[in-house]
Design a protein around this nucleic acid. Structure first.
Lengths: 121, 121
DNA sequence: AATATATATGAACAAATATTCATATATTCA
DNA sequence: TGAATATATGAATATTTGTTCATATATATT
């Protein structure tokens, strides 16, 4: 049972409907695009980041106010803000030593809405 | 510097704009809802699952055809399909020993579209 | 210039999670 | 009934990732 190398033509995956596999393979977006898509949704896949985005949906806020709102320490929030910044979901402006964060555009709202719409049914 | 416990009234988080913090706290959706939202997006935050969903977007498929399409082994695909099933993103029907999976509804398409729309700019 | 404060960040640690391997289950067919 | 096949699943492993802690940086204030 351990040496199943005898039926190893190219790979050992069984295919039942070769036509469908071929068709779908052709229709699939390029690897990189799907990777980027997963990376984007990964950002939304964390409660802390969701909360931060949700807060910014209501108001522009500085780091320590976000931390206070979520009841988390400043460092954790700052780390997550960096991730949100990198994915261009939030933008920031500096006023003295205070940094204000806000949503970069309305994509966040739209993605949120689709998400909620799936949950609530 | 190490013992900053002197200013420890209730918690040690600094608040600059108390009015904003109070306002946003009131406007935030309930904890559980945000948790569910993050859980949903977590599902989309994995390349394998994104690929599976993307394939199913094109056609209903059985497990081994999905595995062949993605170039992954059957077990890995099956594990991910279980997760997708649990979150009600896919449904399945059984025909003999073959199990066919398809998208549960059109939420996947809509969420994908919003995601792509953010990536492509 | 020295101190206080807001934010950022590197490293360590802990927790979550995806894949693989082995195997179980269910169904078909001889 | 027994063999073959499609799928499911538990356990182990490896990787990823979030938080914490300590500390660095930048700005304001005295």
């Amino acid at each position: 049972m351990k040496d199943n190398k005898n039926n190893n033509d190219v790979c050992e995956i069984t295919v039942i409907h070769e036509d469908i596999v071929d068709k779908v393979k052709k229709l699939m977006p390029e690897e990189e695009k799907l990777y980027d898509l997963a990376e984007l949704f990964k950002i939304f896949g964390d409660t802390t980041r969701i909360k931060i985005l949700c807060a910014l949906l209501k108001s522009e806020m500085c780091v320590c106010d976000i931390a206070a709102t979520l009841g988390m320490n400043q460092s954790a929030v700052s780390h997550q803000l960096r991730i949100l910044k990198q994915s261009k979901l939030v933008k920031h402006r500096k006023e003295g030593k205070v940094v204000y964060y806000s949503l970069a555009d309305d994509h966040v709202i739209k993605i949120f809405d689709q998400g909620f719409s799936h949950i609530e049914e």
